[in-house]
Amino acid sequence: MTAKKPLCTVNAVVEAPCGVVAALLTTVSAGPVGPHNGFFLAHGTDPDLRLRGGPNEFWAAIAGNLNGIRVEVDRAQAMLAVEGKWWFRAECRVLPHPKGARMTQQVFNIATSARWMVPMVARGVEGKQRGSMQRLLDRISGHLGCPAYLE
């Protein structure tokens, strides 16, 4: 990702070893999404969700769109990115923290045309991302049996 200013940044702490959290989020392979593959997507809204591609770039069909979202994984950097719609890219990094791991999620405008429209369609994106991150933290907490919370 080029060095652009994010639309928003959300930080969280997971009180588990950084490597454990990074592995949970970056364990991604082609096949069905579940608690041991694409954990960040396994939230129950589409029990038949499947990832295709690999080893570092994947696609998942959303609402009948075969190329609904693009997932990029950089395991060495403990980074996961999700792109969707025509403008949205969220990057999540797992970094060391004194209590375990810090997750930092940033949202970027990647529109190649009509960039001027993004501020209108992205209204409220920070609140939505905080809600999305909290739901992911709740699932991580339940899965790993540790505290996980927004900063």
Results as ranks from 00 to 15, higher is better:
residue 72 E to R: 14
residue 79 M to I: 10
residue 132 S to L: 11
residue 58 F to T: 02
residue 128 K to F: 05
residue 42 A to I: 01
residue 81 A to D: 04
residue 78 A to Q: 01
residue 117 M to N: 06
residue 87 W to E: 08
residue 81 A to W: 03
residue 41 L to Q: 02
residue 93 R to W: 06
residue 69 I to H: 03
residue 57 E to F: 09
residue 94 V to E: 00
residue 71 V to K: 01
residue 138 D to A: 15
residue 55 P to Y: 02
residue 76 A to R: 09
residue 49 L to K: 02
residue 86 W to N: 14
residue 96 P to K: 07
residue 48 D to M: 05
residue 125 V to T: 10
residue 118 V to F: 12
residue 50 R to W: 01
residue 110 I to E: 10
residue 67 N to V: 06
residue 130 R to S: 10
residue 55 P to L: 00
residue 130 R to T: 03
residue 98 P to H: 09
residue 58 F to Q: 07
residue 140 I to E: 03
residue 69 I to N: 01
residue 133 M to L: 15
residue 59 W to P: 00
residue 116 W to L: 11
residue 44 G to Y: 07
residue 122 A to R: 10
residue 125 V to P: 01
residue 63 A to Q: 13
residue 88 F to R: 15
residue 69 I to R: 01
residue 57 E to L: 13
residue 92 C to E: 09
residue 47 P to A: 10
residue 88 F to A: 11
residue 133 M to C: 10
residue 53 G to D: 02
residue 85 K to R: 15
residue 128 K to D: 11
residue 114 A to D: 12
residue 129 Q to I: 11
residue 65 N to I: 13
residue 136 L to Y: 02
residue 100 G to Y: 06
residue 127 G to P: 09
residue 70 R to M: 12
residue 127 G to N: 14
residue 52 R to H: 04
residue 126 E to Y: 10
residue 73 V to H: 04
residue 43 H to R: 05
residue 137 L to V: 07
residue 130 R to Y: 11
residue 98 P to I: 09
residue 57 E to S: 13
residue 132 S to I: 07
residue 71 V to A: 02
residue 117 M to Q: 09
residue 51 L to I: 13
residue 119 P to N: 10
residue 51 L to D: 03
residue 80 L to K: 07
residue 130 R to L: 10
residue 99 K to M: 12
residue 89 R to V: 01
residue 107 V to S: 12
residue 83 E to I: 03
residue 90 A to K: 09
residue 104 T to H: 03
residue 114 A to E: 11
residue 51 L to H: 05
residue 122 A to S: 15
residue 42 A to T: 07
residue 51 L to S: 02
residue 74 D to C: 04
residue 123 R to H: 11
